[in-house]
Each structure stands twice: as C-alpha cells, then as structure tokens.
Design a protein around this nucleic acid. Structure first.
Lengths: 244, 244
DNA sequence: CGGGCTTAGTCAATGCTTGTGACAAAGCCT
DNA sequence: AGGCTTTGTCACAAGCATTGACTAAGCCCG
C-alpha cells in the first residue's frame, strides 16, 4: 500500500475509489467473501475501519463499483469478429474467464447491473451480432437479452460455487460421485446407465457443451446463419435439420 | 402457529425441522432476505431467538433444507413425456416457476445441492431424456449437466434479481430504459437501431427465447431428434421450437 | 503569508447478526 | 419414582453495517 502517514493518521487523499476497488478485489480473491467486510477492507488499506464510507455510500455501492470493474476487465480489448457466432462465443467465454478468476467478487455482484461504459459496449456488440444474424429489431432485442442474461447467469452460477469454502466444494463433488455410483438400478435406471461417465465430467466441458447448444440453436433459428466453415450449418450432424 | 405453551415456555416438541423450514419460506416470501435471520425466525415461531439451533446446526444447514424443499416443490408430480424435448422443457419451466414464486429463498440456496431424493429423481429424468435423444453415455452425461446446470443458473439468476429490494428493481429497469433511449447513435449504433424495442422485452419472453435456443441446439445436435409435429426441425419460422 | 472552508480520516457508539455455553424444565424409560 | 436425554431459554461473545461528532489536511482567496 503506497499510503503515507503523518503521525498515526493517513494523509488526506491517501484513499481513492480506484484503490479501494482494487483492494476489495485483492481481499475477495485471497480470503473469499467471508474475509471481506468494510472494517477488514479499511484495515487492509492501513486506514480506519470506517474510512471507506468517505468514498462509497454503502457496501452495496462499493459492490456496484466492483461489478463494473469485473465487466471492464472481461471486455478489455474485445474485438468484433467477422463471424457473429464467434463474437457471441468470445464475449461469453471472456465473461466466464473473468468471473472464474474472481469467484467471490463475481458471486456477490453478478446480479447487479451498472449501465457504465463497459457494459454499454458489450450490449452494443451483442446486439450487433444479432442484427448481423439477420434478426429483425424486436427479435434481436429479445435474443440479445436471452444470450446476455445467459452468459451472466451461467458465469455467476459457476462463480457462486467456486466462492464456497474449498473444503465444502470438495466434499460436494465427492458426495455426488458417491451418490452416482451407489445409485439403485431399478429406482434410477438412467443414472445407473451412465454412472461411470458422470464423475469425470469437467466444468469446462459442461460450459463448452451448453455454449455449443446455445450457438447451435442460434444458427438453427437465425434468418442469416453464419457460413464460416467451422459453423457450417448441420454439416457435422448431417440430416439433423433436414426438412421433411 | 399451532404451538402450545406452559407458562411462558414452549412445550417440548413444539418445533420440528419441517415446521421451521415452512416458517422460513413464509418469512422469506413475505419479508425477503433482509427480513430473515435466525432470531427473527425464532420469534416468528413464537419461540426464543436461538431455539432454531436445536434443530439445525447452523444457518447454512437450514438453507440446505430450504433448497431441498424448493426442488421437491418444483418437481412434485413431474411426469415424463413421450417427447424428450418436452420433458426437458417442462423440468426447466417448473424449476423457474418455483424459484420465481420464492425468489429470496431461491437466491440464497440456488448454488447448493443436496443429493436428496427429489434431486436424484430429476437427475434421472434428465439423463433419461438425453439417452432418448440418442446421445451415447459420455455425451449424455455432459449434456445432462449442461442442461441441468443451465436451468439452475438461469432460475437462480432471475430469482436473485427478484430478491432485490423492489424499489431497486424498479429503478434498475427504469435506468436501463433511460440508458437505451439516450444512447448516442455514433457510439452505439446497434443499440440505437433497436432502442425502441428494448424496454418492452419481458422476463418471460427472454426465458422462452433462451429455452428455445437451448432446445433447438439439442434438436440440431442430437443423434435422434424428436419428431413431434411441434418440434419438427426448422420447418416453420424462428420460434417454431418454442412451446405454449 | 494567513484565515477560513470543505472534506477525508478517525473515533465512539448503536443495533443488528451468527453462534456458544450454562441452565432448567419436559418427557421418556426403567 | 428416579434418572437421562433432549429441547427451549437465557446471557453473552465477537463481528458486522452504518451513523454522528470530532479533528486535522489541504485548498481557495485575499
């Protein structure tokens, strides 16, 4: 902390909103949400436990600033691809990567929106992708919300789990593995059928699977599907979309 | 409260875990998460502020019981459809309906899993739908997780917003409408293009849109797509897959 | 340079929270 | 009836968000 002191009092201007947000993020990353409180934050800054209140009206106010910082970090340097499917995939992956890098901060702030520049930027990018896909205005508006809210909800959900006590995460995963393997064939035949595959499924694989489904759904319903080789409609699963 | 007293002390056995969970849900629905604490819960039950600790080891322990109660409520009476797409649509809609009916409880418990019977049941139903769709075991396992986690994340996200202070929700929605309409044409051309459509978008429409995308993605990638008339692949215009 | 104003940092205090340990009455079992 | 366990009560610890009063830093204006 680059704060200067005179006697046992901090210099005026030692604390700035930017510094406080940065310190909050550091504290949340290091000690999780249980290790985060305004008194602890003040002490971590070398200041009085209540000093933060001179820069943020409330803890909620601070959380909004943190939420915006995360969006900014996620979308920094985002470029729009020629292919709209790729644009959507990248914004979604970026948001998830940032949220997973700061799970505690993300879990606390995921359901808040801030209308700050970074957020407006990504809204514009997503709507642009929808228009490029050929949706007319009203449908583009709905579909942008669907895709944007999906990205936020998914990344927020994953972050919420990662923000739990690590020991609890481990025991939760272990309990599922046990529950799958101990399942009764007659009572839960379908779980029994795939019981050996269930515990090996990774979070990354699950995310890529749901993203693939959403993108495939967009390709299948968009008036102007992307024609890139990698998104060539239904080529991989020939016949799946065949008209009657 | 049907509790009996002797003097100013509750009869032994006046409190049961079931009663406590029911009272928690009532309190959370009526006063939101800020109006919910173990002291308040105790008082609402006509008991001592710390009485609940005799039945639940901690607040977290109680939250798990509440989470399970919600899953149970959502999946009560669930029947498997002949069409696997419909089965997935129904489980997703059911979970969302229950979470929206108890937003505060849902927001606090959405990221916890309990491995109790109700949850195992829905896992079996979803995996069954995936197998019916023709996914082989490993892919069925991943896709079940993708769809199940999606339903949970989405419903949890919507619940989290509805669990906010109603005044804050209103101001948030109003702020977005204002932000959309005030957008600069040069800076955010895509938002500008659809600005009039954005504020009219409803939560239900957004949900049905994302559900349609996921289901269309499943239809497009499943080895054995559903052949029901209403899911007939890509025949009609966009939205053909959206049910009801 | 000096006086006054605003405001950032400090301090003390309020009323809430989760959770614990001691105690006492209730109801069971023998 | 006597004893044991359990459940409700009580007093209390530690920590939280937030507030109001105080005080000193640094700026503006002369």
């Amino acid at each position: 902390m680059a704060t200067q002191r005179t006697g046992r009092r901090l210099r005026r201007g030692s604390l700035t909103p930017d510094m406080i947000v940065a310190a909050s993020l550091r504290l949340l990353d290091a000690r999780g949400s249980v290790g985060f409180s305004l008194p602890k934050l003040g002490k971590a800054l070398g200041a009085d436990p209540t000093a933060v209140y001179r820069h943020f009206a409330s803890k909620d106010d601070l959380m909004l600033a943190i939420a915006d910082r995360l969006i900014e970090e996620a979308m920094d340097g985002l470029v729009v691809h020629a292919c709209w499917v790729e644009t959507i995939a990248e914004t979604t992956r970026r948001l998830r990567a940032t949220y997973l890098a700061h799970p505690a901060a993300a879990a606390l702030s995921a359901s808040r929106t801030t209308q700050r520049p970074a957020e407006m930027r990504i809204v514009d990018v997503l709507i642009g992708a929808m228009l490029q896909a050929g949706f007319e205005d009203a449908q583009a508006a709905i579909t942008y919300r669907a895709v944007g809210d999906f990205a936020l909800a998914w990344a927020g959900g994953e972050a919420a789990f990662l923000a739990l006590d690590p020991a609890l995460q481990r025991s939760d995963r272990a309990a599922w593995t046990r529950a799958y393997l101990a399942v009764d064939k007659a009572e839960h035949p379908n779980i029994w059928q795939v019981r050996d595959e269930l515990s090996g499924v990774t979070d990354d694989a699950i995310f890529e699977a749901i993203l693939t489904l959403v993108l495939a759904g967009l390709q299948a319903t968009a008036p102007r599907p992307c024609a890139c080789p990698r998104h060539a409609p239904a080529a991989a699963t020939a016949g799946a979309v065949s008209a009657s």
